[in-house]
């Protein structure tokens, strides 16, 4: 199954530059200890074999092993805060807490950048700040699928 909305691993350059540098060797997928990086399947000669992350299936935990091993620097060695993979968007109409029935906090508790990328408004309501790097953990854990991670692949 081909997914259209997918993230590149942390530290990835803008899409065009990334594709020009990626050797399609799959080392990032092989060192990923959370098995979240998959090699893109199919026969599109321009993207086949390049890495992708689908946060609904398995989110990135920002261990940064992949960007450390990348032999052609398609994934740059950057700090966690600078690894702009995307940004998360919270739909307040779907969120348990914002709907006002249940205090959920699943996303807040799991966020690797807790209290910087995700904060609690008034101490209860989860809100995503512009420090979010788009790892997709919140999208993965959200019971209502209220969060969608939008990739920044095409933003230069």
């Amino acid at each position: 199954m081909m997914r259209l909305r997918f993230l590149r691993p942390p530290g990835a350059r803008p899409e065009k530059e990334f594709l020009a540098r990626c050797l399609q060797c799959g080392q990032c997928a092989q060192v990923c200890i959370f098995d979240c990086i998959k090699m893109r399947t199919g026969f599109n000669p321009f993207t086949s074999g390049t890495p992708e992350i689908s946060p609904r299936d398995a989110p990135c935990h920002l261990c940064m092993r992949c960007s450390a091993i990348c032999p052609s620097d398609a994934l740059e060695d950057v700090s966690i805060e600078e690894s702009k993979m995307g940004y998360a968007k919270l739909d307040r109409k779907l969120c348990h807490t914002w709907k006002g029935f249940i205090i959920c906090r699943s996303c807040y508790e799991r966020c690797p950048l807790k209290a910087t990328a995700m904060v609690l408004e008034k101490g209860i309501y989860p809100a995503i700040t512009d420090r979010c790097v788009g790892c997709g953990v919140c999208e993965h854990v959200c019971p209502e699928q209220a969060i969608v991670t939008i990739p920044t692949r095409f933003v230069t």
Binding site: K16, L19, C22, L23, G26, Q30, K38, M39, P45
Partner: peptide, 25 residues
């Protein structure tokens, strides 16, 4: 092309990629 598209013609690479695809995903 900007992607190294001639890589797709590497048959040994496809051989190893078949197993990368199979065992990892």
């Amino acid at each position: 092309s900007t992607t190294p598209v001639l890589n797709q013609l590497s048959l040994p690479a496809w051989y190893s990629r078949i197993f990368q695809f199979y065992f990892e995903q």
